[in-house]
Design a protein around this nucleic acid. Structure first.
Length: 379
DNA sequence: GGGATACTGGTGGAAATGGT
DNA sequence: ACCATTTCCACCAGTATCCC
């Protein structure tokens, strides 16, 4: 491994890509954050959850809908799903165009407000593209297949209430310092959102144990050790427990000495006890992704580097390497790369909490939640 | 000296505005 | 009417400053 730490990688990005920015280190750090998001997003996609994902939705606090927080990724139950063939044109594919085609097919759009997003524009596609919204749901669209002169589109309606949310965070090391920055504000912000989203709330006992409390609609409640209660809810069929439950997942990458196997810093402790699951993307994983796909790609991966580099220049028009805006060719190669190397990529993640759990367990829990009978539960 | 806070720059995305 | 561009806001990341 040429870059033994992410801090060195960040330096390389400063020298090679972000030299134009006024604060090049900050811009490089921001880009590393974007890369963490992309790795997380394509991992969830590869787990078969593509059509459940929404990006940057305003999530209401549990029991306090006046306050919302934009969350990176949220997973929603699917209410409706169908397919649509449309002609390719030189122009972009807009929400408008898709909605018109749906109307011709007598697709029921009652109660939906159209959005003006573009599914495809100049070879850049929009991930988790919302074409319309209603009071209780979102209508999204993705490209299912390229059929020569036509595209097959997947149209799917997501229920507004998610069953899981993901947030990604990254903090680098200050110049000339051996430690990460002193600030804990970012951890506090993440912790606040993580702790206010779900009906399963966290409390401490007198002896310092982490317990969970969840209310039912009649005002009765259950209090139990947190992880036990969380598992009970995930594997239950009780709509009272599942109705407003949201599994919260945090993904962090290295922060100087945030983390060693025996010693966690305050920031990491705060996050670990606030998310239901806290994953740690290792330096080795992040470095492998950046080296293989962005710095020294083989011919096969060259379009990924191209999409990345062209997104960061003084004259760039539009970023085509983010969780939402992604170069179409790069998207195809990324999906292929993730499905072929899934075991390796899953190995890039350590589990910080719940203690002693495996990534496989999170995968199972998400699958379990995905397959619940949500139409009955949310009725 | 070190930890918390204040401040700055960078960016994506939704909404508002402009152009054809 | 339809799409492209601009504006504004929330959030991300790094660093200067404050305060004990």
């Amino acid at each position: 491994m040429a870059y033994e730490s992410v801090d060195k990688l960040q330096k390389a990005l400063v020298d090679n890509v972000f030299h134009y920015a006024k604060d090049s280190k900050k811009a490089a750090g921001r880009a590393l954050g974007t890369i963490v998001e992309i790795i997380t997003y394509y991992l969830i996609k590869t787990w078969g959850l593509n059509n459940q994902i929404s990006i940057e939705r305003g999530l209401e606090e549990y029991g306090n809908p006046d306050i919302t927080h934009n969350v990176e990724f949220s997973l929603h139950p699917i209410v409706r799903s169908s397919f649509l063939i449309i002609d390719k044109t030189d122009k972009s594919i807009t929400a408008n165009k898709i909605l018109k085609a749906l109307q011709e097919q007598k697709y029921n759009l009652k109660g939906f407000e159209p959005k003006n997003n573009q599914l495809l524009n100049n070879g850049v596609l929009r991930n988790a593209c919302t074409i319309a919204t209603s009071k209780e749901s979102f209508l999204l669209c993705s490209i299912k297949a390229d059929k020569g002169d036509k595209f097959e589109l997947h149209i799917y309606e997501q229920s507004k209430k998610p069953y899981s949310v993901f947030e990604c965070k990254r903090v680098g090391v200050e110049e000339g310092m051996s430690k990460g920055p002193q600030t804990i504000e970012k951890a506090k912000q993440g912790a606040y959102v993580a702790r206010s989203a779900s009906s399963l709330q966290k409390i401490r006992t007198e002896s310092g144990e982490l317990h969970g409390i969840i209310y039912k609609s009649d005002g009765s409640y259950i209090i139990k050790p947190f992880v036990d209660l969380m598992e009970e809810i995930i594997y239950s069929k009780d709509k009272e427990l599942l109705r407003r439950f949201i599994l919260t997942v945090g993904v962090v990458s290295n922060h100087g000495n945030w983390f060693t196997s025996e010693n966690q810093n305050k920031e990491l402790k705060v996050l670990a006890q606030s998310y239901d699951w806290l994953l740690f993307l290792t330096d080795v994983g992040l470095a492998e992704f950046i080296e293989k796909l962005l710095f020294k790609p083989t011919k096969e991966f060259a379009p990924i580097r191209e999409a990345f580099i062209s997104s960061y220049t003084v004259t760039k028009k539009k970023n085509q390497f983010t969780k939402v805006q992604m170069n179409m060719e790069a998207d195809r190669i990324l999906l292929d790369y993730f499905s072929k190397n899934l075991n390796t990529i899953e190995g890039w993640f350590n589990i910080i909490s719940p203690k002693k759990k495996k990534l496989l367990t999170l995968k199972d829990e998400l699958k379990e939640l995905k397959n619940k009978n949500w139409t009955t539960i949310l009725k």
